[in-house]
């Protein structure tokens, strides 16, 4: 009796969701992880190794990865992923894969092309440390399309 009730309610929820046009919302999934890059020396050779961090200290280099997948049956268009940088993180380096913002996400562009107005020194080229947001733009995600977006940050 009780389990029947639950079943019924689950069904009705599913029906409700299906009736709302916004089904695509539930079909695209974003999933984030963070990894700590360490330089380890093995047999006299230095190499970079990524691992889940227990904790980090200032100066540590972190790889933030966001995985996306269109698990629905319909394509989505104008797929834009925006990642505000945590205040304790500065962007390690620019990447052609993403555009950056130095004004809190209001405008985006390539890092090399952005100028910052400085009251004392006049306009100067924006640097990685100025970046506040990162944005990836993908035209279209077909059903089943998936991939990863990532950036390196350094603990300030």
């Amino acid at each position: 009796m009780f389990s029947n009730l639950i079943k019924t309610s689950v069904l009705s929820v599913a029906a409700l969701v299906a009736s709302v046009p916004a089904t695509a919302k539930d079909t695209v999934v974003l999933s984030g992880i963070v990894q700590l890059e360490r330089v380890v020396t093995e047999d006299g050779k230095a190499q970079k190794v990524l691992a889940a961090p227990e904790g980090v200290v200032p100066g540590d280099r972190l790889l933030f990865t966001t995985s996306y997948e269109n698990s629905g049956g319909e394509p989505v268009e104008n797929f834009v992923v925006t990642n505000p940088l945590p205040t304790a993180i500065r962007l390690a380096e620019a990447d052609a894969a993403f555009q950056v913002s130095v004004d809190g996400g209001a405008t985006f562009g390539d890092l090399g092309a952005i100028k910052i107005e400085d009251a004392e020194a006049g306009a100067r080229a924006a640097e990685a440390r100025d970046v506040t947001h990162i944005r990836w733009t993908l035209e279209r995600l077909d059903p089943g399309a998936k991939g990863t977006l990532n950036y390196y940050g350094i603990v300030r």
Partner: peptide, 26 residues
């Protein structure tokens, strides 16, 4: 760290999806 995706679904309706928030302590 949290990423947010904005896109248009098959009907052209704007949608927003957040990732999980990854947390690491200094």
């Amino acid at each position: 760290n949290t990423a947010t995706a904005e896109f248009s679904d098959a009907d052209g309706t704007p949608q927003t999806v957040d990732s999980n928030t990854v947390t690491v302590q200094v």
